[in-house]
Amino acid sequence: MNLAAIKAIYLFEMARFFRTFRQSIIAPVISTSLYFVVFGAAIGSRIDTVDGIGYGAFIVPGLIMLSVMTQSTSNAAFGIYFPKFTGSIYEILSAPVNFFEVTVGYVGAAATKSLVIGFIILATSFFFVDVTILHPVSMIAFLLLTCLSFSLLGFIIGIWAGNFEQLNLIPMLIITPLVFLGGSFYSTSMLPPFWQAVTMFNPVHYLISGFRWSFFEQADVPVAISLGAISVFTLICLTTIWWIFRTGWRIRS
């Protein structure tokens, strides 16, 4: 195991994050604040409660998930796409490292960044609403697993992408709709039966549900199923990356 290499990649990626730290956090903080103003204050004031929780507080887990998922995906995708784009990936390809080490370095850094952003958003939300966290350990576990699995997904997207448009395509086209339709801003019990059924096929829904349970003990699906779902998702991503490095797909001609 080349631990020095993991550390080198991780620190190099984190350095990029700290160079642009203010830009990195200002966008998620502003957009989260906007959500609170629009959904929490303006619209939320007309909605009493959802499942017995004040609407402003109800959307906090969903908002964090929305940011963490998009940040994880785009950070990890960008992290590996950029060296591909500049050609500096030659160094990774000719170094004594295996797929696991490269992945841990890049994905670890991307997950760390979005974890930081997740906590910053959580802190921001305290300014707007009262949030109680009934199960902090489970909350952190869900957050961690989400950062990790979506960074893995982003890593795959970064390797797959052939240009900057493709790099933005998946987060825009898939992640955002899945998060919005996964119950970030509502309880699925509020949907008509047909859409409730459709939601069951949305993997993001399980994450948001589990994450929200950690806050309010209020879930659309049992927590165990949520945990199972995210574990399966992580495993699928890991297997895909293992296959990519084995075959050199899109990185080694």
Partner: peptide, 24 residues
């Protein structure tokens, strides 16, 4: 390599330290 393939925004020292770490 033949091409000047480098991360543009990193400092020279860090960039070389990165290479050293990468090789264990």
């Amino acid at each position: 390599p033949q091409e000047l393939s480098l991360e543009a925004f990193e400092t020279v020292r860090n960039s070389v330290l990165f290479s050293r770490g990468l090789f264990g």
